[in-house]
Simulated assay, not measured.
Amino acid sequence: MEASTIWWLAAGAVVVAELLTGTFYLLMVALGLVAAALAAHIGLSAAMQIVAAAAVGGVAVVGWYYFKKKRPEDPSARADRSVNLDVGETILISEWSSDGTTQVKYRGASWTAIHRPGVTPATGMHKVVELVGNRLLVEPL
Results as ranks from 00 to 15, higher is better:
L27Y: 02
V29R: 03
A30R: 05
A30E: 05
A30T: 09
A30K: 09
L31M: 15
G32K: 11
G32V: 10
L33F: 12
L33I: 03
V34S: 08
A35F: 00
A35E: 00
A35S: 09
A37S: 13
A39K: 06
A39T: 03
A40K: 09
H41E: 15
H41G: 04
H41P: 00
I42D: 00
I42K: 00
I42V: 15
G43N: 08
S45R: 11
S45M: 05
A46T: 10
A46N: 08
A46L: 12
A47C: 00
M48Y: 10
M48P: 00
M48L: 14
Q49L: 08
I50D: 00
I50H: 02
V51Y: 02
A52F: 02
A53Q: 04
A54S: 03
V56E: 05
V56W: 06
G58S: 04
V59F: 10
A60S: 13
V61M: 08
V62S: 05
V62D: 02
G63R: 05
G63C: 06
G63Q: 08
Y65T: 03
Y65S: 04
F67R: 09
F67H: 12
F67K: 03
F67T: 10
K68R: 14
K70H: 07
K70L: 03
K70F: 03
K70T: 02
K70C: 03
R71M: 13
R71V: 08
R71S: 12
P72V: 13
D74Y: 04
D74R: 15
P75G: 09
P75V: 12
S76Q: 12
S76M: 11
A77P: 00
R78Q: 06
A79G: 04
A79T: 12
D80P: 04
R81K: 15
R81E: 15
S82R: 15
V83G: 01
V83R: 08
V83D: 01
L85G: 12
L85I: 14
L85Q: 14
D86G: 01
V87F: 06
V87H: 04
V87C: 09
V87S: 07
G88F: 11
E89M: 15
E89F: 07
E89V: 10
L92Q: 13
L92K: 13
L92C: 03
S94L: 14
S94Y: 13
E95N: 15
E95M: 14
W96M: 12
S97R: 15
S97E: 14
S97Y: 08
D99H: 11
G100T: 07
G100P: 07
T101I: 01
T101W: 05
T102Y: 07
T102A: 14
V104T: 07
V104P: 08
K105M: 13
K105W: 11
R107S: 09
R107P: 07
G108R: 07
A109N: 08
A109Y: 01
A109W: 00
S110D: 06
W111I: 06
T112Q: 10
I114T: 06
H115L: 12
H115I: 15
R116S: 13
P117F: 13
P117Y: 10
